[in-house]
């Protein structure tokens, strides 16, 4: 498998604060990578750079062979982003939201209508298609948000703490949708604080502390959840003491 995401020596500063310090990361096509790390580790900054929302202060990011700084528009066409913000318009209906984003991604009308129905079915919101997003619960919004992120069949799905605020049912539905994605078509990069849930589905785990990758291991080399938790705590404590 080739690398669909290649970040080399990436740094990002906000004034005197260095959020990323020469980070290197390669993600193979079709891989499901989970990024763990304490608050302030630079995970969200990394996702913002990968999604072209933010530019690195130094280093380079290549997405499917394209430069994230100069080819941002083309890269956005192949990326879907799911964050703790839903990116949905409260005064539009579920269906209208998906239609709007589908059009922004240049989907043809007939393809778009089919895709909307298919996705609403998948996230179990078909019966609420005509309801305004403002009237949906947090869990429903997050499920609709998955549909929004997948509307254009992205090759890369970036997930920034997607389980935040979800109840058990919503989290299960979300996990199901995520696992149903065809790995040959979709590469997934997820930031999470939930080690148990992350380990259930991923291919590889990376731990970030203070803007750097301090641990990188395939899922097959990781034993139990407890072992990973111990490693995580040791690494975070070690970096804090350093």
């Amino acid at each position: 498998m080739d690398d669909i995401i290649l970040a080399s020596n990436v740094s990002r500063s906000f004034g005197n604060v260095q959020a990323l310090k020469g980070l290197d990361l390669a993600v193979r096509r079709g891989e499901f990578l989970v990024i763990l790390g304490p608050n302030g580790a630079g995970k969200t900054t990394l996702i913002k750079i990968l999604s072209t929302l933010s530019r690195p202060s130094g280093g380079s990011v290549m997405i499917d062979g394209m430069d994230a700084t100069t080819d941002a528009v083309q890269i956005r066409q192949m990326i879907g982003v799911l964050s703790h913000d839903s990116y949905l318009y409260n005064d539009l209906t579920a269906e209208e939201n998906l239609r709007f984003f589908g059009k922004m991604y240049g989907l043809a009308d007939d393809v778009l209508e089919r895709r909307i129905d298919e996705l609403l079915e998948k996230v179990e919101l078909f019966h609420r298609a005509g309801d305004r997003v403002g009237t949906l619960s947090r869990g429903m919004k997050q499920r609709l948000s998955i549909a929004r992120a997948l509307i254009h069949n992205p090759s890369i799905l970036l997930l920034d703490e997607p389980y935040t605020g979800l109840d058990q049912h919503a989290a299960q539905t979300f996990e199901k949708v995520l696992l149903e994605l065809d790995p040959s078509k979709t590469t997934r990069v997820m930031i999470s604080h939930n080690i148990e849930r992350s380990l259930r589905s991923c291919d590889r785990v990376v731990i970030m502390v203070r803007g750097k990758v301090v641990y990188d291991s395939p899922r097959s080399d990781i034993g139990s959840v407890e072992e990973l938790k111990e490693t995580y705590i040791a690494l975070v404590d070690g970096e804090r003491d350093a």
């Binding site: 999604s51 929302l53 964050s83 913000d85 839903s86 990116y87 949905l88 318009y89 409260n90 929004r148």
Partner: peptide, 9 residues
């Protein structure tokens, strides 16, 4: 709901 970010994406 962070829609500006969604738009920028």
């Amino acid at each position: 709901n962070g829609c500006l970010e969604g738009l920028k994406l």
